[in-house]
Design a protein around this nucleic acid. Structure first.
Lengths: 243, 243
DNA sequence: TAGTGGTCTAGACCACCCT
DNA sequence: GGGTGGTCTAGACCACTAC
């Protein structure tokens, strides 16, 4: 059923260069081989290499200087998030140098309430899967997370889900859906007693609140997120490319 | 002195398409002409058109469907911020459908304190320009903003700055510097008495706090930002492309 | 001056959607 | 089958930097 297709060369080049930056084959602040050298090494055209480099430069992972060369942006080590990944808490914790642990508080089907139904564009009352989890950075609870997935996306109504997956992996495995983009509301709130208890926090210490809707390429709402992030425990530092 | 050069064709095509989306020449949710038609209309190659479309697709302003066509993503109307613009409050207010008003509380030179000096990578005590402003959405105060610019970037030590400019425009006009990227810390804080007074808020209502460092293409710190954003008054909703 | 990245072209072929 | 976007190539020329 599943067709295995070779990934586009540009993506492979993109991945390869990312890998080499991660493992310091290209050192932080160091210089990459020239575009022509990369093209020769990999046996592809310079245009293909440039396509990959353009993506990396857009994220500011590399910096290109005309007449000079292409360099690894060492400042990326200081951040733990980029704008496309502001909802991927496992990754943020990992990027901060901590071990990510996920504790599943509960996972269950329930009828969609008015609010969820509206945002997911489904009739109220139909079944949705609710996934409530707690993310730890090493031993410290950092994010109290609720995700709601519209039942129509779930292939089978099984109950032995691997609940520690990041949401995009969960949607990929159980719904065969890819996230194309996310719309997030960012807020600052004082936690209620329950939230404070779970995060082992006082109720007078404000938390970041992220409320998200996840969409696929066809603009269909896949899932919701509501997350309380304790930025006193884990700094949230992101890079924003401009222009 | 200044060399006037025609902008790259890809950027012109990018701007043109953005303009046509803004003025609904290409309606929300509507379909764009094919890449070949655009290339013919503008007298450029399809590759050039594709380069511009790739940028727009990366921001999710348009959605491309193989075998079908390219469409305007109507969901962009729901958000007020995207990608690299989480610090551009004038723009966020504007995108929300309000009139942006900027009130300059004060602007003055002062010696850099330890904190600012570290972040700007300058010796403590050297002169910096501090710009303290309040942003209104219509008549409501929404953002209490402090910017600090290293004195070395300011061409002349004049005092009749146009202080209502967005920071990137200010840096462009008076420092001849372009922002390449921004590193932001996002937090949730209870305002102190002074901040609450200025934003006409209670001290028990948490605010979003953005603490930023602005860098140019050479990785040099240009300026700092520290902003209190009242997301109870103006929702902060942003789109995050994924993958 | 040599080498780098920046821009742009023309064209080939493929994968996919619609009718 | 015809049209759409997706991928990739080869090559030309330009702008800029380092030496």
């Amino acid at each position: 059923m599943l067709i295995e297709r070779p990934k586009p060369i540009t993506e492979q080049v993109d991945s390869l260069i990312r890998q080499r930056i991660r493992d310091h084959t290209y050192a932080p602040g160091g210089r990459l081989p020239s575009e022509q050298e990369l093209a020769d090494e990999l046996g592809v055209s310079r245009t293909t290499v440039r396509s990959a480099l353009t993506t990396l430069a857009a994220e500011r992972l590399i910096i290109r200087r005309q007449g000079d060369g292409t360099y690894v942006n060492q400042r990326m080590r200081e951040v733990n998030s980029q704008l496309g990944g502001l909802w991927d808490f496992s990754n943020i914790i990992q990027n901060s140098g901590y071990q990510t642990t996920v504790q599943t508080l509960y996972v269950k089907y329930r009828p969609a309430d008015e609010h969820a139904a509206n945002r997911l564009n489904i009739p109220p009352g139909v079944s949705v899967l609710e996934l409530v989890r707690l993310f730890f950075a090493d031993a410290q609870p950092v994010v109290y997370s609720t995700n709601v997935i519209a039942g129509k996306w779930l292939a089978q109504t099984e109950s032995d889900y691997e609940t520690k997956l990041a949401l995009h992996n969960f949607l990929a495995r159980y719904c065969n859906q890819e996230i194309a983009y996310v719309i997030s509301d960012i807020g600052a709130t004082l936690p209620d007693a329950e939230t404070a208890r779970i995060l082992q926090r006082e109720t007078d210490s404000p938390l970041l609140n992220f409320s998200e809707i996840f969409y696929n390429e066809d603009n269909q709402a896949l899932a919701l997120g509501n997350n309380f992030y304790d930025e006193k425990r884990l700094r949230l530092r992101l890079i924003q490319p401009w222009g």
